[in-house]
C-alpha cells in the first residue's frame, strides 16, 4: 500500500502532506547515499520557466547522484513560451521524453496544472508566490537533523512573514507536529497573513511580536525583508536594521539552538554569525540534495526498495 502511495505521486503543495508523508521523506533522505543503479536509465525533465540557479542545480545534482539523466531548460533558453505554447502543451510534450518533471513557473497554480496534465510525477520547484514544497521538506530535514526531533520545538520566524512563501509553508508543515511553539517576529506591516494564522489555530501555540527577542528558541528561521515591499524608503531602512542577526543578537540563543535561512541572504544575517555553532543555513542548503534524491527515489521507485 505504501508503495502505491509514493510511486507516481506528485509533489505540489505541503498542504498535500501528512505527518507520515513528511516523516517518510525525511527518513529516506537521512539514509540515502549516491547509488549508480537506482535511477539508471531514468530521465528527469527540469523545466525552469523562471530562473532559480540554486534550485535547478540542486535538483540536477540529486538526480545525477542516483545516475539519472537530466534534460530541460531554464528561462532565457525557452522557446515554447516565446512561440505562445501553453504550459499544458509543453508538459504533454516533455512527458514523452522523461520519467519525472520538475517545474518552476512564475504563475501560481502552474505546478498543479502540470500535475493534472501529466501522468508521470511532477515536482513543484516553486509556483510564483504559492508553494515550494521541497524547500519546506529540506527545512524540516535540517531541523530534525540538528535538533534531533521536530515535536516540541520552539520556532521563531523573523523578518518578512507576509510575503515570504517559505515561512507560510513551513508554518503549515509544523501544524502536522506536536507541541510546537511559534514566535512570529516581524514589523507590523509584514505580519503573517490571516489565512496562514487560521491554519495554525488549535494546532500550534503562536505569538506575534515586533521585538527581536530570540531567548528560549530552538530554531530561528530568518527571511529577507525586501525593499519593494515598502512604499517609503526610510521606513524600509529602519525596519531592515531592526531585524538583523549579528553575533550580539545570537548570544540570546542557547548553544544547541540553530539559525536557518532559505538563502540567498543579504544583510539580515551578519557574516560574523557564520562561524557560530548555531549557524546552520549552509547545512540547510546542502540538505536539498538528500531530500530531493529521496523524493526522486520515492516517486520513481516507490517506498520499499
Amino acid at each position: 500500500m505504501t508503495d502505491q502511495h509514493w510511486k507516481n505521486r506528485d509533489v505540489i503543495s505541503i498542504h498535500d502532506f501528512s505527518r507520515e508523508d513528511i516523516e517518510t521523506v525525511l527518513h529516506e533522505a537521512a539514509g540515502i547515499v549516491p547509488n549508480p543503479d537506482l535511477l539508471r536509465g531514468r530521465v528527469m525533465a527540469s523545466l525552469f520557466f523562471e530562473p532559480s540557479t540554486r534550485t535547478q542545480l540542486s535538483f540536477a545534482s540529486a538526480c545525477e547522484r542516483l545516475v539519472g539523466q537530466v534534460i530541460g531548460f531554464s528561462s532565457g533558453e525557452v522557446s515554447s513560451k516565446a512561440k505562445g505554447e501553453t504550459l499544458a502543451d509543453t508538459i504533454r510534450m516533455v512527458e514523452g521524453y522523461s520519467d519525472v518533471i520538475v517545474v518552476r513557473h512564475p504563475l501560481e497554480g502552474s505546478a498543479r496544472l502540470a500535475a493534472d496534465t501529466a501522468d508521470i510525477p511532477v515536482i513543484n520547484a516553486g509556483d510564483g508566490a504559492n508553494q515550494h514544497p521541497t524547500q519546506t521538506l529540506l527545512d524540516l530535514f535540517t531541523m530534525e537533523k540538528f535538533s534531533g526531533k521536530i515535536d516540541g520545538l520552539s520556532v521563531g520566524m523573523v523578518g518578512d512573514l507576509r510575503y515570504g512563501r517559505t515561512v507560510h509553508s513551513l508554518a503549515t508543515a509544523l501544524t502536522r507536529f506536536k507541541r510546537i511553539k511559534l514566535r512570529l517576529i516581524s514589523p507590523p506591516t509584514l505580519r503573517m497573513p490571516p489565512s496562514v494564522l487560521r491554519e495554525l489555530e488549535g494546532k500550534i501555540e503562536y505569538a506575534e511580536q515586533e521585538e527581536l527577542d530570540l531567548t528560549g528558541l530552538d530554531v530561528v528561521y530568518v527571511t529577507r525583508i525586501q525593499k519593494e515591499r515598502f512604499p517609503d524608503i526610510e521606513e524600509y531602512e529602519k525596519v531592515k536594521g531592526t531585524y538583523v542577526i549579528n553575533a550580539e543578537v545570537a548570544q540570546q540563543l542557547s548553544p544547541t539552538a540553530i539559525i536557518l535561512h532559505p538563502l540567498p541572504r543579504v544583510d539580515e544575517i551578519h557574516p560574523e554569525v557564520d562561524a557560530l555553532p548555531q549557524a546552520k543555513y549552509f547545512e540547510q542548503a546542502k540538505a536539498g540534495i538528500p531530500v530531493r534524491m529521496a523524493l526522486l527515489k520515492l516517486l520513481l521507485l516507490g517506498e520499499d526498495r
Binding site: G84, T86, L87, A88, P106, L107, E108, G109, S110, R112, L113, G128, A129
Partner: peptide
C-alpha cells in the same frame, strides 16, 4: 473567478 491575478486560471492559458 480566482481573485489572485497571478493565478494560472487568469493567464492566457485558458484553464
Amino acid at each position: 473567478k480566482c481573485p489572485n491575478r497571478n493565478c494560472i486560471t487568469n493567464a492566457a492559458e485558458k484553464v
